[in-house]
Amino acid sequence: MREKLIEKGLLLVAFSAVAMIFLIAYLIFREGVPLVAKVGVWDFIASTRWAPSKGSFGILPMIVGSLEVTLLAVIIGATLGLSCAMFLAEFAPRWSVRILKPMIELLAGIPSVVYGFIGVVVLIPFIRRTFGGPGFSVLAAAIILGIMILPTVIAISLDALNAVPPLYKEGSLALGATRWQTLHRVVLPAARSGIIAAFILGMGRAIGETMAVIMVAGNALTMPTSLLQPVRTLTSNIALEMGYASGDHQAALFATGMVLFVIIAILNTIALVIARPRT
């Protein structure tokens, strides 16, 4: 009897995460849906003019901005992060890995606003001096986010590489393959799903990041056609304007959150499909 009660209680607890996600979705959609219905789905996601006080609610530039910044950030984070993980896993001496890994994990804990701040005081003036323009740009946001997700990508893909059974490696090396051939042909494919998980996690952090992006992206409302142009992402649109919004404008920001929700769901699904083991 008591055991049954405990089981029921735990089931209830276990459902709290599900309840929360539905509650969040419900609250956000309830505020956002009426506006999208009023404006029209197509006009909301495909028009380029955002002037809520004048009744224009187009968030296309921000959708493009979010995707562009996230994609670039993941490219930067994934290239550097995976290289770093491969080097540490296969070529670097063991003792150095034992020191470096905890330090890299520590870096994953640094608040994103600190990364944003470094961007403002170091990266922005550098871009302004080197390439001209205001400095606040797609490029700046992508670099800062790329660096921000690096520790996560390194730590998780390093774990994935280390989790490959040593037998695989030994077999390959015994057949006369070089370490690189072994890494490239045997270890990487075996660690594939873990590495992709690392990228997905990094992507999630990059597209969801708000404060650091507000600090370095410039938040302009143009369609970003050049890497040196300022850009506004979906998350920064919400955080920038929420404080002063009211009425339809506020609803439009919730609707922005809705679109963000949907985009993240789509990206995660795509990533999961790619990550599925090949048959």
Binding site: F15, A17, V18, I24, G204, G208, T235, I238, I264
Partner: peptide, 27 residues
């Protein structure tokens, strides 16, 4: 049932912090 619970946890993990902020403010 476990699939639903896992889906809930995974979906919650994917929610950006700004959405949590909005949600916490409203609720």
């Amino acid at each position: 049932i476990t699939r639903v619970i896992r889906f809930g946890a995974d979906a919650l993990a994917g929610v950006p912090s700004i959405i949590f902020g909005l949600f916490g403010f409203i609720l």
